[in-house]
Design a protein around this nucleic acid. Structure first.
Lengths: 192, 192
DNA sequence: AGGCTAACAGACAGGTCTGTCTACTGCTGT
DNA sequence: ACAGCAGTAGACAGACCTGTCTGTTAGCCT
C-alpha cells in the first residue's frame, strides 16, 4: 500500500510515467532530470533515491517500452488467428497501430541507442530486446513450417525495424501497409 | 586557392572532416563544438565564421552523408548491370558494404533525426534525403515495369531503412544478406 | 610597403546538466 | 507515543556547452 499522500500513484510510478512520455518525445538526452522532476511533481531526492543514476531511469524506461511494444506485437499476432503463417503477417498490425497513435515518433529503442555510447548498458538492453523479439518471430516461423526460420525471422524483423525507424520522420500509415504487404509476400515465398 | 599554411586542406575542410567523423561516431549532440575545434586543429573563431551555428555544421554533415550514401547506392545499382530489376536488388550491396565498414554505426540521418527536435531543419533535411532516395528507387521500379512503382519503392526503402537502422546495434553482414534476399523476393513478386 | 584577409589562440559570459546535501513534513506500525 | 520512513523543497558544486569577443600572426595582392 502506498505511503504518504500520492495524488496519482506512487512517486516512483509518477516518475516513470513522466519519464516515459518525455523521453519518448525528446529522447533521454534531450530531457533534463530537472524537467522530469518538475513535470512529475516529485522532489529531486526522491527521484535519485529510486534511480541513483539517470541511466537507471533510462533503462527502466526501456523496460516499459519493451513490455508495451512486445505486448502489442503478440496481441496483434494473436488477433490474426490460429495459423502461425497468418500471425507472422498479422503482427504488422501492431506497426499500423503505432503509426496511428498520436505523438508517434518511431522506435524508442533505436532512437535511444542512437544517442547512447556504443558499449554501454543502454545498447546492451536494446540488443537484448531485439534478440528476444527475433527469437519469438523465429519460433513462429518454425511453427509455420519455414525451411529457414532464422532467415524469415530476420527478414520480417528487418521490415519491422524499417517501419519503426522511419517513424521518427513520418508516421504515415502507408508505411505500415507497405510493410504488411511485404511480409505477406515474404511469408508466402518462404512457405511455398 | 587556399590562403595561409593549411596542413591538410583548408580549415573548412578539416572542420567538416572532423565533424563527420565525430558526429557519426557519437551523434551531433554527443560532440561539443570544443571537441571539433580541438581535433581539427582550428581556432574557434574560424569554425564559427564558416558555420555560425552548430546546426549549420550539422546540416553540412548531413549533406556530406547524403552525397556519400546516395552515391554508394547508385554505384551499387550500376554495378548490378543494365537491367533495372537487377539494379533494384543490387543497390543492397551498398548496405553490405556499409555493414562491413569499420566503425559502422547505422544510418546517420535516422540517428541524427532521433536526437533532433521534430519540426527543425535537421528533420526537414532528413525527410528530404529519404524522399530523394525513394524517388530514385521509384523511377527504377517504373523502368523495371512494376505495376505499382510507388509501392515497390516504398517496400524496398523500408528494407533499406531497416538494415540501416539496426546497424546502430549490430553491423552483422547477415542483415544485409537478409535484406538483399527480401529485395529479390519482393522485386520478383512485383514483376511477375 | 602596406592593406586585406584568413586563420590562430584563448579568455569569457551565460546557460544547462547531473548528482549531492541539508532541512523539513507527515503517515504508519509497534 | 514515537521511531522510522517516504516524500517535499530547494540550494549548491562542478562539469560542460554554445556562442562572443579581443588580440595576434602570416600570407597575398596592389
Amino acid at each position: 500500500m502506498p505511503a504518504h499522500r500520492t495524488p496519482a500513484g506512487s512517486a516512483r510510478d509518477r516518475i516513470l510515467e513522466t519519464a516515459f512520455r518525455l523521453f519518448y518525445a525528446h529522447g533521454p538526452r534531450g530531457v533534463g532530470v530537472d524537467t522530469v522532476i518538475a513535470e512529475s511533481g516529485v522532489a529531486k531526492a526522491t527521484l535519485y533515491k529510486h534511480f541513483p543514476r539517470k541511466d537507471d531511469l533510462v533503462l527502466a524506461y526501456l523496460d516499459r517500452v519493451d513490455q508495451a511494444w512486445f505486448g502489442a506485437l503478440r496481441a496483434a499476432a494473436r488477433d490474426a488467428g490460429d495459423e502461425p503463417r497468418d500471425q507472422l503477417v498479422g503482427m504488422f498490425d501492431a506497426l499500423a497501430g503505432a503509426c496511428r497513435r498520436d505523438g508517434y515518433h518511431g522506435c524508442a529503442f533505436i532512437n535511444t541507442a542512437a544517442e547512447s555510447p556504443a558499449g554501454g548498458p543502454v545498447h546492451a538492453r536494446t540488443v537484448e530486446h531485439k534478440t528476444v523479439v527475433r527469437a519469438w518471430v523465429t519460433e513462429l516461423a518454425r511453427q509455420a513450417g519455414a525451411a529457414d526460420p532464422e532467415l524469415l525471422a530476420r527478414q520480417l524483423t528487418l521490415l519491422l525495424d524499417g517501419g519503426l525507424a522511419s517513424g521518427v520522420l513520418d508516421g504515415d500509415p502507408v508505411i505500415a501497409d507497405a510493410a504488411r504487404r511485404s511480409a505477406r509476400t515474404l511469408v508466402d515465398a518462404a512457405l511455398r
